[in-house]
Amino acid sequence: MSDNLIDTSGLSKSYSGSPALRGLNLAVPRGSICGFLGRNGAGKTTTLKLLLGMLRPDAGQIRLFGEAMDSEASLIAARRRIGFVSEDKELYPFMNVGQTIRFTRALFPGWRRDLEEKYMELFRLPLMKAVPKLSKGMRTQLMLLLAMARGAELLMMDEPTSGLDPAMTEDILRALADLATVGQSTIFFSSHQLAEVEQICDRVCIIDQGQAVIDGDLDDLKSQYRRILLTFDGMPPSALASLTGVDHLRQRGRTASLLAHGNVDLLVDQARELGPTSVEVRPVTLKELFLDHVRGE
């Protein structure tokens, strides 16, 4: 029984002929913090826009909170429970912080005054300052406040920590961890900062050329993948590539580097039979997992 807050199947979208998404299957379970990774132009922002109804899919289905998003009414109902932080963190240029908060507050009957005050105090945002005069960090904090104080069950963010200094980044991550713990919110965000994703996410989805190439629990992925380094006397045998469980093979001189997945012990045995002079098995970092899956070969 899955309680996925976000569920897409076969989601496709093209812009004037060139495909941005080709059958994306994505599932974000309740209570998880899911990192959405991909190269620039792989389809991350398109996905977020589709989920929020700013774009309409060419094919495929979207379910939010278990409900099919097939009409404007269903989208509006979903948006009452979602908080969104856009990539450039743009808000209304003619308002100040206080007005922006009042404006947003008026639209959400479930607004949490206590959260609003908590984050106002935590972030120390100046109430009377005009929004365009805020630094990017403060705008991010304001958008986060607006997203969280509305009592959202699901938070969707496009590169929340881009352009922020390490101290502010840590503040934001801490706020997210807190939301997941106390508020039991589900968080789905796209990011280029692998280190942060490894720190805070328990799920990860990697998208490449419009499709999900990895989607699962991050710790499980780390358990299932291994890097195996084999050195040979001569050139590494070509039979290496056809061993079961080899996701990716790279050769440098007399060393072969395998990204292995699944029954790693069996694979190591089979690899040993090919007569390497040394065998080394190492854990795989998210960075390696990412790079090996998006190299676009």
Partner: peptide, 9 residues
Amino acid sequence: SMLFTLSLP
């Protein structure tokens, strides 16, 4: 800010 507006219910 259009994106912000469009994400509102």
